[in-house]
Design a protein around this nucleic acid. Structure first.
Lengths: 166, 166
DNA sequence: AACAGTTGGTTGAGTCCTCAACATAACGTA
DNA sequence: TACGTTATGTTGAGGACTCAACCAACTGTT
C-alpha cells in the first residue's frame, strides 16, 4: 500500500458537503415517498423500470442489473411488491430457472398516484436550488462519477435488449 | 394541490444520473468501510465527529444534531459502538437526563486504522473522476442543495458551542 | 411548591438491506 | 450421456434504520 493521498482542506470540505447534502436529500425523498406513496424509493424505482419495459414485464435479473444491483435485494423487493398486489411473478417458458416480474394494473395505478408528489419533491429539493447552468454542470459531474463507478454503464443500458424488444 | 411541475427530459436525465451515481457511490463506500474498517459509514462519521470534539466528547443530542438527525438512530449507534469498545457513555453531572459520548483510545485507533483506505476510496470514486473546476462546481452545487434542505445549516454548525468550547 | 409543557434519551417492533448458503436449471466438454 | 461449471433466483439470519411510545428530568408559570 503506497502513501495515502489525504484530502486537502478544500476537498474535505466538498466531500463533507456532498455527503451531508445527498444524505439529507435521500432521507427527505425516502420519507416523502414512504408517507405519500406507501413505498420506499427503491421500490418506486422498480415500478418505474417495469412501467417502461415492453409489456411492463422484465426478467428478474434484468430488473436487478438495470437499477438495483443485488439479486437478493430484488427478490425480497418483488416478494413485498407481490404481497402488495403491485407486481406479479410469472414463470419463464424458455428458461425454467427464470422468472418474469410483471407490473399489475394496481401497481401501475400506485405508481401514477405516487408520481406527482414525488416529482414535486425532487424539483423542490434539487432543481429549485440550482441555476440552469448548475443543472448542466451537475449532469456532467454525475455522469463522470457514474462512469468511474461502473465503466460502460451508459452503453450497457442502451444496448440492453430488454429495453428495446422482448 | 396545483398542477404538477413535471421534469423535462433533460431534468429527468440529470436526476436519474444523479440517483444512480450517488447510490453507487454510497454503496461502494459503505461496502469498503464495512469490509476494511468493520463499521458502516454512519458509524465512521460518528467517530470522526467525536474525534474532532474537545476532549473527544459530545452530548448525545449534539452528536445527533451535528451529523445524524434522528436521536433514536444515534442511540442505537452508540449502543453498538459501546459494545465494540469504541465509545463510552458518561453521565452528565449538570443535567441528569443527559449523557456524554466519549471516544475511547480503542475507538480512536479504529478510526485511524480505517481512515487511509476510506480516504483513498473517496478520492478514487469522486475526485479522480472530476476536473478541479468540476470539484469547485460540485462544492457550490452541494452547498446550495444542503441550504435548500436545511436552511441555516452552515450557520448552525459554526455557532454550535460544542465545537468551540466545552 | 405544584403542575403543565418541553427536552434528552432509550426502547421495541417492524422494515429493508446485506451476506452467505442453497436449489435448480442451463451450458460445455469429454 | 455424464460431469463439472456457470447462471438464475430464493431463503434466512443478522444488522441498521424508522417510527411511535415511553420514562426521566428540566423549565416556566402560578
Amino acid at each position: 500500500m503506497s502513501e495515502t493521498r489525504w484530502l486537502s482542506d478544500e476537498e474535505q470540505n466538498v466531500w463533507r458537503t456532498f455527503a451531508a447534502a445527498t444524505s439529507m436529500l435521500h432521507a427527505h425523498i425516502e420519507a416523502q415517498l414512504q408517507r405519500d406513496g406507501g413505498m420506499p424509493h427503491a421500490y418506486y424505482e422498480v415500478l418505474v423500470v417495469l412501467s417502461e419495459a415492453p409489456a411492463r414485464t422484465l426478467r428478474m435479473s434484468e430488473l436487478a442489473d438495470a437499477r438495483l444491483s443485488s439479486r437478493s435485494r430484488l427478490s425480497h423487493a418483488v416478494a413485498r411488491l407481490e404481497a402488495s398486489g403491485w407486481v406479479r411473478r410469472e414463470a419463464c417458458p424458455t428458461d425454467k430457472r427464470g422468472a418474469w416480474a410483471v407490473l399489475t394494473p394496481a401497481g401501475f395505478a400506485a405508481l401514477e398516484a405516487a408520481a406527482p408528489s414525488h416529482v414535486e419533491t425532487v424539483r423542490q429539493c434539487l432543481f429549485d436550488a440550482l441555476t440552469p447552468e448548475q443543472v448542466e454542470q451537475l449532469g456532467e459531474i454525475m455522469t463522470a462519477i457514474r462512469e468511474q463507478m461502473s465503466p460502460g454503464y451508459e452503453a450497457a443500458i442502451d444496448a440492453c435488449p430488454s429495453t428495446r424488444s422482448c
